[in-house]
Nucleic acid binder design. Structure first.
Length: 271
DNA sequence: AATCTTTCCTGCCGGC
DNA sequence: TGCCGGCAGGAAAGAT
């Protein structure tokens, strides 16, 4: 499930158990994620203290003195706290065991997630260096969106999901933000005005903020760091609501495919 | 059987 | 001719 709100919810939930705490051990049960988990990781990270738990887009950053542990949840990843010694279930590929006994566990059935280690500035890591601005950073504004889209004829929804344009906006929240902004997801990005991009910036932020406030969205079996499900899925305005009347105008929500992803929108409210 | 929350890579195209 | 950006499609793997 994880888009930015789910990753941020996870970050906030894990922080009290890891920030300022010493790592006793890392346990790698399966290295075969999207990229291999480094063989040296358990040796490298044991004894390190986590100085901060950050987030860049959908990446979690466990800052330590010697480097940074980078974790991405992919499509099906979940990171939560268990007690030391809790028996692993299938797809529990990685544990970070704190000296306190609290254990951060990664479960990722599809294995599109990542567990990496980097020295130096993690934001210069190849996976992070080219990312677009954070949605809540002031550098993400209408002028930026306007400039980034001058040569883009692709539909705005696909451009909004491009991590080089803005970090962390995936399929669910692109659908929701475009509805709130009143913009048709099929509109060519280079044919949208500065004024409408201003509205889109505001609605991307508002959508993500509301989702974070609700603890993220729980589809299928996603749960937060405390094992509790998020509730934002109950507040979707268009996502997964094809054929259901629009809450604003009662027109049935349309369901289409864009770039092999599901898109939902109101044909009347979104032009 | 088709679908899903992510992201990277390839191949192709048009423009210069 | 080569280089570039843009864009569509495919790939990774498992559950439902």
């Amino acid at each position: 499930m994880p888009e930015l709100p789910e990753v941020e919810t996870t970050r906030r939930g894990l922080a009290p158990a890891v920030v300022g705490r010493k790592i006793a051990a890392a346990v790698v049960r399966n290295r075969a994620l999207r990229l291999p988990v480094p063989r040296h990781l358990p040796h490298t990270i044991a004894g390190e203290t986590v100085s901060a738990l950050g987030r860049r887009g959908k990446y979690l950053l466990f800052s330590c003195h010697a480097g940074t542990l980078i974790v991405h949840l992919g499509m099906s990843g979940r990171l939560w706290l268990v007690e030391r010694g809790t028996p692993p279930e299938p797809h529990d590929h990685f544990d970070l065991v704190m000296e306190s006994g609290a254990t951060v566990r990664l479960r990722d059935p599809r294995r599109f997630g990542l567990v990496l280690w980097t020295r130096g500035d993690p934001l210069r890591h190849a996976l992070l260096a080219a990312m677009g601005p954070e949605p809540f950073d002031q550098s993400f504004d209408a002028a930026w969106l306007y400039r980034m889209t001058r040569s883009r004829r692709a539909p705005i929804k696909q451009v909004l999901m491009d991590g080089h344009v803005v970090a962390g906006v995936g399929n669910i929240y692109a659908n929701e933000a475009l509805f709130r902004a009143g913009i048709n997801p099929r509109q060519a990005a280079n044919r949208i005005s500065r004024a409408r991009y201003q509205i889109l910036v505001e609605q991307v932020r508002a959508t993500l903020q509301h989702a974070i406030g609700a603890g993220g969205s729980s589809l299928r079996d996603y749960v937060g760091s405390d094992g509790m499900a998020g509730s934002f899925q109950n507040q979707f305005l268009v996502y997964d609501r094809g054929g259901i009347p629009c809450q604003r105008c009662s027109t049935p929500i349309a369901a289409i495919r864009q770039g092999q992803r599901s898109t939902f929108y109101c044909p009347r409210c979104q032009r």
